[in-house]
Design a protein around this nucleic acid. Structure first.
Lengths: 398, 398
DNA sequence: GGTTGAACTGAATCTTCGG
DNA sequence: ACCGAAGATTCAGTTCAAC
């Protein structure tokens, strides 16, 4: 069985893939030694083993919700597959930490191999494990971008009254490499947050009620099912539609359900057949959102570059026209080649940015917002003209 | 020079000391190899060296704000071209993660030796260092009780729009040993938190304005001075009056100032003479709170929750009376059922807390301290009326 | 004296492209 | 890889000068 999200695997991968030149057009995701990406599937098996079968540099985001503590029954294994014995005295606690670190190291290394060079990783944990996971991922070369706090709106109280209510969990967001050009949908997040930057502390309720998967007897299916809103915030922050999201501890499949709804591809790895099957059924029932609902708001960073000279060429600014700053303190004249000349005693010629900086005695200046033209008796930043041209170009392109 | 907080060292230590049977009554804090505790002093020197000179098992709490190892790149400018005054001090520079881990291990081991068996440690950090510190302290045998998030009310934004606003720092609270019978003032914290358990996420503004120490030229004295409210929350949570609080990275002496105000003893260790001297002067200027203000509040059982409606029922507030905030900007009318109605165009009815929040456009509000009544031409918070009622009820019960 | 607005500031791992 | 230039980017405060 296979849940297929709209769009063939090849298309999606090509859309968001790095190094397109290295990929064959016929079989874009196949190399001699690696099978194609099992997109939108739940792989049943050991995380580290399954990760090792996937091609390198093939996923955009890893979301991981690894086991939190050391009392894992038979689940915790060393990289050599030997089992870690449960221990409870003080000396063996140290031994257990070491074993947990080896486990973290193994899956983080495997995940890092599978990540695209510009990919990022989110991992969630509590104070029991997150410090060890964080240190380990730093040691492996991941570059932390943020730590993020999931503030629980409705945490479980501390029944014995001996500690603070454990009302949060910690996420670490890290790039594969320090110099990665990672995806971060800054403008969209800000627009959805009352036009202020999204902070590193996120408030969400626990996964309860209808959203919480139940087994036949009405008991919760999975002990640590995460709220979909939390995963959605992650995918909307650090991926684009069509991107590939891998979850090596898939559990009840929240990552897959959210990915399908948001039109991202997913790859799930889950060791227990029961969870994997429940996840597949859950994901199949998800209706992807209409594509219009996922269109990102315009991002200045991603808009095509338009040189000031093009505005002159197209006649939106006439050579000889006068530019001023917002308050009319500085003046400059537009030249036919798209440079401008500062008016006054010391005439300087250069780009809108350079001359704007010179006028203010600053090191740098965004000429698009600094310089204004007068139209209909009012001053407008020349950025307005650029926006007008971009709009025309967009129409022309269609 | 020596700042002396009320109470002789020996008395205080006896009051809060573990294992009194092991201490001589004549010289309670002196053993053959260890000098007496330098209470309420700032020791100038290397943290690890100075810690090693102190007697073992002698302090109740360690608060540590170690270097964060920020690893900043070039300079950063705000969108308005002003320069961000970064932490570029030599003491924050480490060769590698390995070097930082060795440093953490050394000071944590030294701190652990000095802690009483039932003592606890708070350490604060950011994602740059906190994961390493957390893993190290677990390795050393500390037992984590909580991680705590300081949510900054007014963090510095992310100027380049490439990450989430780094709006929090992380504290780890750990016991010296897993079986420690540590101090946790659960009832007091709950009572001061509108009778709900104190959560692991704390909201405080940065240390700015009058509280921030400045040098002769008006620049901030120390780059990372912490808000007193944050340290006060820690001392009120995990120590009792007379306890000994040690801060191995004393800096501008916030821990000492708060300890003195709350009638705890402190020991500060600071490497830089300039900071140590400023800290001493700062602490000397602190007036300890009256002892009555520090007596542990009656437990929740003794001080039953009093609903606002009971104040109305008992006639301490009359239906129809007007409530205002401290500055008289918002007004509300008391209704007979104990709800209040916001005055103005859009009348809102609800609890004192809810309507207070609505008035300010805030998420939450403590109506007891927000709303005031006018008596004898002066405004008093309605919390005063609640206190009066509780006093009457107490008398009635006796 | 009160009000308004500009200036300043805070533990920050803070860009991208083309030559 | 390095370098220079284009060009994108801020929130909640406090302080202080100007009215």
């Amino acid at each position: 069985m296979r849940s297929v999200v709209k769009g063939a695997p090849g298309q999606a991968a090509r859309r968001s893939g790095e190094h397109p030149s290295k990929l064959s057009v016929i079989a874009p995701l196949t190399t001699k030694n690696a099978p194609p990406l099992p997109l939108d599937e739940v792989l049943v098996g050991d995380s580290i083993l399954e990760l090792s079968k996937l091609p390198a540099h093939s996923v955009d985001l890893v979301f991981a919700d690894p086991p939190y503590n050391l009392q894992l029954g038979g689940e915790l294994k060393r990289p050599d597959e030997s089992r870690v014995d449960a221990v409870d005295d003080a000396w063996d606690q140290f031994e257990s930490f070491q074993a947990y670190d080896a486990f973290s190291r193994a899956w983080l290394m495997a995940a890092r191999r599978v990540l695209k060079p510009n990919g990022t990783l989110f991992v969630i944990g509590s104070y029991h494990n997150i410090f060890r996971v964080g240190a380990t991922l730093q040691d492996l070369g991941f570059w932390i971008l943020n730590d993020i706090i999931w503030r629980k709106a409705n945490p479980m109280p501390n029944f014995r009254g001996r500690r603070f209510t454990n009302a949060h969990e910690t996420l670490i967001w890290a790039a594969r490499d320090a110099d990665a050009k990672y995806t971060f949908n800054y403008e969209a997040l800000k627009a959805g947050n009352d036009d202020v930057q999204m902070r590193s502390d996120w408030l969400f309720p626990l996964c309860t009620g209808q959203e919480r998967l139940k087994d036949e007897s009405g008991r919760k299916l999975h002990p640590t099912q995460k709220p979909e809103a939390l995963i959605a915030r992650i995918l909307l922050s650090a991926t684009k539609p069509g991107d590939v999201v891998l979850d090596p501890f898939f559990g009840s499949g929240t990552t897959g359900a959210v990915a399908r709804r948001l039109r991202r591809h997913f790859i799930g790895i889950e060791r227990e057949t029961g969870y994997a099957e429940a996840a597949r059924a859950r994901i199949d029932a998800v209706e992807p959102l209409p594509e219009e609902a996922l269109i990102a708001p315009p991002s200045a960073r991603e808009a095509p570059r338009v040189a000031f000279s093009v505005l002159v060429d197209r006649g939106l600014v006439t050579p000889g026209a006068e530019l001023t700053d917002a308050k009319g303190r500085f003046r400059a004249v537009v030249r036919a080649d798209g440079t401008i000349a500062l008016s006054g005693e010391a005439q300087k010629v250069g780009s809108i940015h350079r001359v704007g900086a010179l006028a203010q005695g600053a090191e740098a200046c965004n000429g698009w917002t600094f310089w204004h033209v007068e139209q209909d008796g009012r001053r407008h930043p020349i950025d307005v003209l650029r926006a007008r041209l971009r709009a025309e170009m967009g129409i022309a392109a269609e």
